[in-house]
Design a protein around this nucleic acid. Structure first.
Length: 335
DNA sequence: TATATTTGACCTTT
DNA sequence: AAAGGTCAAATATA
């Protein structure tokens, strides 16, 4: 309500600026990636990306000139709704009589990493706190947070969703970084260069293997790939390759689309297999067991994911760069 | 008994 | 208003 503002509301402008900055980061990362890609279509793709970068640059310039200039500061999502309605009923009594106070900001974090894996083991100990049916997906999404959130305030989270095309695989999206110190949860960070040089080990990692020594660039790559992967949703599991661009690319196609498509084409994202997927029958007994034994409050009619294991990670989750939230986009797109 | 999961309700964002 | 993310009571399991 209260649409104060003549043209574009400041908040929207700031949001747009943020989006542009991120889009630029992603496009730049993609461009860097394309430079080392050995593919006939690479030059063409580079041209397209260059076009995107140019447009983004001009858009940012226009926005900046417009006085929006909120780019530097990220809009605070938490305070967002407050400004509008202000005091919300901080609690409500449910039918059962319990009162619930809540104050959380949703989607305050951007994914730091997304990968497809055949196992949920990643070397961290997770605690499941929710599950949700998702609109365009047949597979429910499960929500996990680090077990050490309570005792160490670790804010790492992850979302797990079975791949629609191949339900034996999971699309795992990570949010935040682990700040916990528990030995069993210390992530081993695998350098990008390694992953790139050693394809064998790259199986479980999404990496651009950036040749650049620019750490910021590498970090951005990861971040944006996560975004792109998110856009692709679970369908990308199915599309092993080939996609087609229409020539409409010339007219600034959606950056997300573009990047998602190109990434898909390059086949950078490799799904995994062969990682000790079974071999453990922890508690529910793995995949199938949960639904049957089920417990829980109502006995899952629908299947659910196996409890998060705390075994030694079969693969490692790297936590890179700054978590979305505060970002001072240091990324440079060009020398 | 303690800890983890399930699940419906609540809350935020789009 | 719908969709998605989180909370917390109820319930299972170790």
């Amino acid at each position: 309500m209260a649409s104060s503002g003549r043209g574009v509301p400041a908040e929207r402008a700031a949001a747009a600026a943020n989006d542009l900055v991120e889009a630029r980061e992603g496009a730049a990362a993609l461009r860097a990636f394309l430079l080392q890609l050995d593919d006939q279509r690479a030059p063409w793709a580079q041209g397209v990306v260059d076009g995107v970068l140019n447009r983004l640059a001009s858009a940012m310039a226009a926005l900046d000139a417009g006085g929006a200039a909120a780019a530097g500061g990220q809009l605070s999502p938490a305070a967002g709704s407050g400004s509008g309605g202000g005091a919300r009923p901080q609690q409500s009594v449910s039918s059962s009589g319990n009162t619930k106070k809540r104050s959380f900001s949703r989607r305050s974090q951007r994914p730091t990493d997304t990968k497809i894996t055949s196992t949920l083991e990643d070397g961290h100990v997770w605690r499941k706190y929710g599950k949700k049916e998702i609109q365009n997906s047949r597979q429910p999404r499960s929500y996990y947070r680090c077990t050490h959130k309570s005792d160490q305030g670790c804010n790492a989270k992850r979302q797990v969703q079975a791949c629609e095309a191949d339900t034996s695989k999971y699309v795992v999206t990570y949010y935040g970084v682990h700040t916990c110190r528990d030995p069993s949860t210390i992530p081993l960070v695998v350098p990008d260069a390694d992953a790139g040089a050693a394809p064998d080990r790259a199986n479980n990692l999404i990496s651009f293997g950036a040749t650049t020594t620019n750490a910021a660039a590498a970090s951005s790559s990861h971040q944006y790939l996560a975004m792109a992967a998110d856009q692709l949703s679970t369908s990308w599991c199915a599309s092993d390759d080939v996609f087609s661009f229409s020539s409409s690319a010339g007219s600034l196609m959606q950056v997300d689309e573009l990047i998602g498509a190109v990434v898909g084409s390059a086949g950078v994202v490799t799904s995994t297999a062969t990682v000790g997927s079974s071999a453990r029958l922890d508690r529910g007994g793995g995949f199938g067991g949960v639904a049957g034994g089920s417990g829980g409050g109502g006995g899952g009619g629908t299947g659910s994911f196996p409890p998060s294991p705390n075994g030694l990670g079969s693969f490692v989750v790297g936590s890179f760069g700054s978590v979305g939230g505060d970002d001072d986009d240091l990324f440079r797109m060009d020398p």
